[in-house]
Amino acid sequence: MRHLVSIDDLTAHDLHGLLDLAASFADVQAREVRKVPALRGKTIVLAFFEDSTRTRTSFDLAARRLSADVINFSAGSSSLKKGESLRDTIETIDAMGVDAIVVRHGSSGVPLTIQQWTDAAIVNAGDGWHQHPTQALLDSFTISQRLGSLEGKKIALCGDILHSRVARSNVAAFSKLGADVVLIGPRTMLPPNLDGWAAKVEPDLDAVLPDLDVAYFLRIQKERMAESLIPSEREYRARFGLTEERAAMLSPDALIMHPGPMNRGIEIDPVVADDPRAVVLDQVANGIPVRMAVLYSVLGPGQFDGVDSGANEGVDL
C-alpha cells in the first residue's frame, strides 16, 4: 500500500489485512513498553490544515510508538496564514525529506491532489466531506473486537450523512466487510444521489432500532443550523437523536458508536453516552493500533499489501 486516501481504493482482503495488523499492534499496546522500533529512522509529518485534536494526537502517538520521528504542522501556526499556497507548503515539506505526510484538510480531494508535488506516502486524516479512512478502520476494528466480525451485521449510520466524511468511509468499509448498512437522517442531510453507495436509506429510525447490531450516530455540526437544514436541535433530538427511550429499543448486545466529539443532548442523550453498550472510548483507544497499522503499511519494510504477502515478517514486535 503506497498511500491511504480512500476506503474505495481498498479491497475486503486489504481491509482484513489492515485489521489483522492492527490487532498485533493492539497486543503491543497492552505491554509495559508500548513502543516498537518498526519505523525507526522514518520521518512522518502531520500536516493538519484543519483543526483536530483527537485525530492528530492519535496519529502522533501511533507514529511515536513505531519509533518514527514526528513533525507537527498545523494551519494555525504555519506559513499558510501568511498566504503560502498548498503546493508551496507541500513542496517545502517534501524538500525537507520526509517519508510520509498525514494530511487533514477542509477540502475534499486534497490527499489526491498533493501526490503530484511529493514522493512521500500520503495518509488521509480526513478531507472535506470525502473520506476519513482511518476512522472507518478503527470503527471496523472496534466492531470486530466486540461482535467478532462485521459479516451479516446490521449497522445504521444516523445523522448528517451529506456533510460527513466519516459516513462516506464507513459505508464503504462496513459494506466491504459484509455488513448491511442503512442510512437515517433528515432528507436535508442525506446526499442528493445514492447511486453507487452500498447502503440504502431507511426513513424510520424507530422501526430499525430493534434489529440493529450497531447504531452509529454522527455529530451534528453547529454551522448546519445556520443553513437551516433542521428547524432546531430540539426537534432533531426528538426525531433523530438517541434518546433513553430509543436506547431501550436497542438490543442488549447492540453497540452504540459515535466518532466524537459528542454533542450530548442532541444526537445522543447524556445518559445514553455512558450506557455500557456505548463503545466511544474503545473507538478512541483503537485509533492508535489502527493508525500504527496504516503507517506501518505505507512505510514499513516490504510495504504491506495484504495478509498473505508475508510483509509482517519484517516487523519486530
Partner: peptide, 15 residues
C-alpha cells in the same frame, strides 16, 4: 454538478 458524483466525492453540488 449535483448528482451521483458530487454525492460520492463529497463536493457541494449545484443542481
Amino acid at each position: 454538478h449535483e448528482g451521483e458524483w458530487s454525492s460520492r466525492l463529497g463536493l457541494a453540488g449545484s443542481p
